[in-house]
């Protein structure tokens, strides 16, 4: 038996919004420690790694490890049927071929359940090596989202250049060019608004705007984001989901010809 309950359906909706741009379907691996999802997009340019801890749920039970392959468009249809403040319970029997979503309104006057067929997805599990990054940037997630959106008007790529002075995001194309520089801040009063850089050595890498914009769909999950970069390895964009887990996106850099 698997059962996981969240007081707010809105949280699950946000998690789904954060992955459905990149993935059409995904396997949710459930164990007694929580729910994990790891999948590359179809072009093998980006990877999504989601972790939701068992103790982050209001109720969590997983008697046997279970992999639930879900079509994310179908899951989206079902979650649209929930109000954000409904409680959601995800249930499945061991070896089940379907999963049930139960939505309960605040006052319990409305209880609805939706059953969805599970898919057998032939997904490989990947070992992600531990990397000592040359630089790690922590910044407000809304600011990162804004920068990605603004720069994608100019070109298909963003160059991220990190030095001890700060981080520069640049893009150029037919209409011209754009540069956004962020300096490190030392505003302890508003910790949420700070930009901080842990730098071992300067790094400059180029990434596709399209993927960065997809990653920023996780912005409603967290008001902070971190960008970890080293030369010639994938960028890691991480959003901590408060009291529940994290979502990490890996993106292969563009290669100069």
């Amino acid at each position: 038996m698997f059962e996981a309950r969240l007081v707010s359906s809105g949280t699950l909706k946000k998690v789904l919004d954060a992955i459905k741009d990149l993935l059409n379907e995904a396997s949710f691996d459930c164990s007694d420690t929580g729910i994990q999802l790891q999948a590359m997009d179809s072009s093998h340019v980006s990877l999504v790694s989601l972790s939701l801890r068992a103790d982050g749920f209001d109720k969590y039970r997983c008697d046997r490890n279970l992999t639930m392959g879900m079509n994310l468009a179908s899951m989206t249809k079902i979650l649209k049927c929930a109000n954000n403040d409904d409680t959601v319970t995800v249930k499945a029997q061991d070896d089940a071929d379907c999963v049930t979503f139960v939505f309960e309104s605040k006052k319990q006057e409305k209880i609805s359940d939706y059953e969805m067929k599970l898919m057998n997805l032939d997904q490989e599990h990947l070992g992600i090596p531990e990397t000592d990054f040359s630089c790690v940037i922590h910044m407000p997630s809304g600011e990162f989202s804004r920068i990605c959106r603004d720069l994608s008007q100019f070109g298909e790529s963003v160059i991220i250049s990190c030095t001890k002075e700060g981080v520069r995001f640049s893009s150029s194309g037919d209409i011209g060019s754009a540069n956004i520089k962020l300096a490190q801040t030392n505003n302890i009063d508003k910790e949420e608004e700070t930009v901080s850089i842990d730098l071992q050595e300067p790094v400059t890498l180029t990434f596709a705007c399209q993927y960065l914009n997809s990653f920023t769909k996780a912005t409603p999950l967290s008001n902070r984001v971190s960008l970890s970069m080293s030369a010639n390895v994938p960028l890691v964009v991480e959003y901590e989901i408060p009291d529940l887990g994290h979502i990490r996106y890996y993106l292969a850099p563009k290669i100069e010809e």
């Binding site: 070992g127 090596p129 292969a252 100069e256």
Partner: peptide, 14 residues
Amino acid sequence: TSTQGRLDGFFKVL
């Protein structure tokens, strides 16, 4: 000009 890299090769298949 630049080409899009892929993730294959960065991660080990378990």
